[in-house]
Design a binder for these strands. Structure first.
Lengths: 208, 208
DNA sequence: TATTTGCATATTGTATACAATATGCAATAC
DNA sequence: GTATTGCATATTGTATACAATATGCAAATA
């Protein structure tokens, strides 16, 4: 594996989990020394991450972490909703056949012990919605946007008063899938992300 | 402007207009010499373009232009459709107010003299559909995907038997916008891209 | 003759050196 | 005292040098 790929993965993880905070400046020489690599692969990793929205750069001033704030949620969540809904609509019989699996996952989500487990199962459900779409490019795009959204997992976990809400929405979506009405399921999925957007924003407003 | 930004723009243009063909290998030293720059900014530009889908890279084998084929159309057009439809739905009163402008553009499209002008006006119309969405991130994503789709402009231009078809679809979309029914307009826009997908694929099948 | 191994070469990946630009502070002019 | 200019420093941007890996050919062996 190339050094730049490792660096990219490491930086992305550090941004997702908050080790590198919003707006934090990324000094190239300092960072490369701390990571035990040279500036070249680090810069290449940062350029790749810039395209995905994790960092920004301004000429002759360098890289910094993008800002995870309400504005980002307002922009990001509708994108994810639209892409997931489209993937679901494109999925055909394969998703319909997997409805029981999704239903089972949703039950596990309802009884999840901790927040980490909840997020894991939630991701599995949403992955199940889209994995059969037969559009790798769409899935990759979605994956990138979801990775960005993961920066708000903390807010989402604390923000959900009753996780039952999300489960209920999932159940409706799965019911539409079982009924072979993927158009309806897509609409509900879009709504689900709209709800998530509101939830996260409310949490952000209270806790800043 | 940084050398790497110029290089990125130049390479992107060369791929869009076919100066760099599908699957063409991109020799770093040769290309950098021809462009009068060093390998460093060239590589940085290529890495940025890889994230946008214009080139791919395999470790220790280098960069090459991605393949503009039927598979790409099947993947790309539904993505664009979903994103444009979402942007349109998010646009609110601003698009509705701009309906007359869109209508006028569509009339100009109907009477466009040459293919280049047609594409220019078509892009203006689609830009008009989304520009008021208030979601810069969505617009940027859309712009990138549309830049990729531009690689098929040649196919699209030759493939459209009667440009009246596209105009008619536009007219329906604009009518829905005028009626303040953005949900319906979004659906129609999705269909419009589905039609475009079919048209381009048919052309590709005949001409390869 | 077919296959495999080893080397020569070419190309990418990484490190470092150099150039250009931005930033902050101090000195000077008003 | 304030503002401005100039320089010293730090940091990014680019070029180049070096290292690692892949590729192709030739020679040797079965």
């Amino acid at each position: 594996m190339r050094v730049r790929d490792q660096a990219k993965a490491m930086l992305q993880a550090m941004i997702s989990d908050g080790s590198l905070a919003s707006d934090e400046r990324l000094d190239e020489v300092g960072l490369s020394h701390r990571m035990g690599i040279s500036r070249t692969p680090l810069r290449e990793a940062l350029i790749a991450l810039e395209g995905e929205g994790f960092v920004r750069s301004v000429p002759h001033k360098g890289f910094s972490v993008t800002t995870a704030n309400e504005e980002m949620v307002r922009e990001l969540f509708p994108i994810i909703g639209a892409l997931e809904a489209q993937a679901l609509r494109m999925s055909g019989e394969a998703v319909i056949a997997s409805a029981p699996v999704l239903s089972a996952l949703n039950n596990r989500l309802a009884n999840a012990k901790n927040k980490a487990k909840s997020h894991e199962i939630d991701r599995a459900i949403h992955h199940g919605f889209v994995e059969h779409c037969g559009n790798p490019r769409l899935l990759k795009l979605l994956e990138t946007q979801c990775a960005l959204a993961r920066r708000f997992d903390g807010a989402a976990a604390r923000g959900i008063a009753n996780p039952a809400g999300a489960c209920a929405q999932h159940a409706k979506i799965i019911a539409a899938i079982e009924a072979s009405d993927l158009a309806r399921a897509g609409e509900l999925l879009l709504l689900h992300w709209r709800e998530g957007e509101i939830t996260v924003i409310n949490w952000l407003k209270k806790n800043t």
